[in-house]
Structures are given as C-alpha cells and as structure tokens.
Amino acid sequence: MIKVTIDNILIEVDEGTTILNAARKIGGKVVPPAMCYYSKLKGSGGKCRTCLVKVSHSSTKDPRPMPKLVASCSTPVQDGMVVENLTSPEVIDARKGIVEFLLLNHPLDCPVCDQAGECDLQDLSFGFGMEETATEEQRREFPMTDIGDKIKLHMNRCILCYRCVYVADQLTDQRLHGILYRGDVSEIGTFIQNAITNDFSGNVIDVCPVGALTDKTFRFKSRVWFLKPMNVHRECSKCSGKVTAWMFGNEIYRITGRKDQYGELEEYICNECRFEKKALTDWVIEGPRHIKRQSVISANHYERMKMQSIIKPIEGLMESQE
C-alpha cells in the first residue's frame, strides 16, 4: 500500500493506482473532473487535460515537485506523494483555461441539446468556467450525420475525448468509426458514410460526455429532468439486461445503461434493450434510481413521488438500492 496526500487528505491505495482513482477513493470535491478518462476503457484519458493537478512533492524518495501540472488520470501515485487539486490556485487557473478551450468551438446549443441536464461539459463549465466569453471567432461547423439508424452524430458538440473510439475497439469486433483529419478540424467519422451496426454500438451514446452522440429514438422527445429514472431489468441473451428506464407517467421514453456518480456505466447494454424495448411490459421494475452526480437531474424529486398503481415495486428490491 502507498500513502498519498490529496488536498491535505491522506489515503492509502494500491501501487499503480492513478492520482484520479486515489482521489475517487476519497470522494467528494477532491475528485478532479474528467472528460475523457473512463475507468472501464483501457487506454482512455490524458487528452482533455481537465484533470490536471499539481504534484508539490513527488515521493518520499524524491521530494522535488513535478515541473508541470500533470494529468491525474494517467499519472500513477508514488509513496509520499503530495497532490494539490482545489487547494492550488494554479490548478484552478489552468482548469479555467481548459474549460475555455473546450467551449471555444462548442456550439453552446444546450437549449436544444438532448444531453443538457446530464452533460459533463455543462457541469464542468458550471464548476470552473468563466462568466463571459472572450472569443468572437466563428466556431467550426460540421454537418450532422447518422451513424447507424439509431445514432445521431452531431460533430459540432464533440470534444474529441476518444471514448467512443475506445468503446468500438474494446467492446465490438470491428471498429467502423475513428478520428479523421487532425488539429481542430479533426472529426469522428466513418470516412465513407457507413452505418455502425453492432449489437453494442449504442454504448457510444452513454460514454459520450457531451451531446455529440445521441439516441435517435429519444431525440427531442423530452428534457431529461422531466423524466423519472427507474431501475428495470429483463432477461436478455446478449447483455445483463439491467438498465435504467427514463419514464414519463407510464411511458418509457428511453433506455440507458446504469451510470455511477462519475457518469460511467456499471455495465454495457445491448442495442436490443436500448432501442427496441420501449414497452413497460418488456421490463421488470425494481424501483427509482438514485442519481448521485451533481446535476439538475439529481434533484431526485421523483423519488419522493408516489408510485403509480401500474408500477408495482418488487419486494425487497427497493431497500437494496442506494
């Protein structure tokens, strides 16, 4: 076990743990925000630079500070390391700069974006963004495309976190999309218009931190904060069948995977569960899902609402939910 201090909090973690994961073990505000890192995707992280932290003491052996801010998601901890996140004004300044860069070409079309309310970039801007915009330049623009009949790609909103590329690499047999071109004109694409037809391709929607990849069966149906997230499950031959159903009244508006407090999926789900099973009779309802993240949907009013007669919670399941 290795001892690390993050924002004056001491914690013991296993060797090889990254600073970000050590901070997640502490939890709360100490955790640096991450737009590209995804603990379940190997090789992800290091790209968005929002998780930059200051290492003021490298290790017991080498007490020198690290010369630059480091990406906490890809830097392993060392024994005796002292990390400053929110306690360092330098880190806050750098993060403000990064948010400004991420928003530079982002269309800020939150009022018409389906991701609004559960968007990592929205949360990040709320936490670290500046109040006014300094840019007067034109933003880059791409035409909207369909990748597959159920997924919409809205490249203008993309922050190039590469998560969807890793999903396709690590979850499916064949990756059909990737990053094309370079610099600020690089884009996600299939090069020649190509449908991504894989049983698990829908997971790219869930891993996307912004509204670049959205569910076509849900687009413009409702705002997420009007919906009640419910834990539901079904027998599925392809995946675990454990999902979150987003409901309005007795109607299922959309199905997503179950996400933890960092917006990461607990389990990947298949396209059949995600796109095709929208009838209440397809599912066994476990109960309302508690959203732990800091977001507008975490107000959790629905948890206090009375269950409607048709939704009969299964005995014992309600208690086991967080």
């Binding site: 929002t50 990064i98 990053i179 370079r182 600020d184 690089s186």
Partner: peptide, 22 residues
C-alpha cells in the same frame, strides 16, 4: 502550428487555432 497540431489534447487543438485567428 495550427495546421500541424494533432488535435489529441484540448489546449493545443483549440488554442493554436484561436491564436492564429487573433
């Protein structure tokens, strides 16, 4: 530098283009 940035990390991808425009 704007033309040659690989676009992997956000400060360089967005910052080089912004500097060029200004």
């Amino acid at each position: 530098y704007h033309h040659e940035s690989c676009g992997q990390c956000s400060p360089c991808r967005e910052g080089t283009g912004w500097m060029e425009k200004v």
